[in-house]
């Protein structure tokens, strides 16, 4: 079903524009040029963020921090790979997807951990990355409570994902 959404969306716009006698091709080019300019504007921010996230994630600092929690987590029956995934989720979508895929391989997608990982991935977005990208695209540096609000929402989402998975599949 989801496969139809994008084509319907695009076709709908083009058909409607055609009906309204918009010069579709010219319009498209104007917008596309805008997109090109935007890409160049955000390029430094994207490269800078990817650089920093890579150094941070590949240092395995998070694994080190969470290795202390392992005995406690194992007692409750939560494999230790799930917490790093929860921590990585707000930083990098690709990294958390990689951990999730790893969990699926080890425990299977229909295991409790597999379902928990699925819900973790779905419950929030890459807050830090999005904030950095959106704010640097318009050169805003004073972001007030944006980060704390985003991280607070993430935290609640992660806790909720744990509780909800326990309730539904536990």
């Amino acid at each position: 079903m989801a496969n139809f959404l994008v084509p319907i969306f695009v076709l709908g716009i083009i058909l409607y524009a055609f009906k309204q006698k918009v010069n579709i091709y010219e319009s498209f080019l104007v917008g596309a040029k805008d997109g090109l300019v935007t890409t160049f504007k955000i390029a430094p921010a994207v490269i800078a963020m990817v650089f920093a996230t890579n150094i941070f994630l590949n240092s395995h600092f998070l694994d080190f921090v969470f290795s202390y929690f392992t005995p406690f987590l194992e007692a409750v029956g939560i494999p230790n790979s799930i917490l790093p995934m929860a921590m990585v989720r707000p930083i990098s979508g690709t990294a958390s997807l990689a951990i999730m895929s790893n969990i699926f391989e080890l425990y299977g997608p229909d295991s409790f951990v597999g379902r928990l990982a699925s819900n973790l991935q779905g419950c929030t977005d890459t807050t830090i990355y999005v904030l950095a990208l959106y704010f640097s695209s318009i050169k805003v540096t004073k972001t007030k409570h944006a980060l704390s609000a985003g991280l607070f929402a993430d935290f609640v989402g992660i806790v909720a994902a744990f509780i909800i998975t326990f309730l539904f599949f536990g």
Partner: peptide, 28 residues
Amino acid sequence: DGLKLLSEMLPLLVLWTGIMQVAEDSKI
């Protein structure tokens, strides 16, 4: 790596902003 991500984003951004410009001009 950053450049790779950008090169994945670029065609999407260009295409979608193009389509959205059409959407904007048609008042949809």
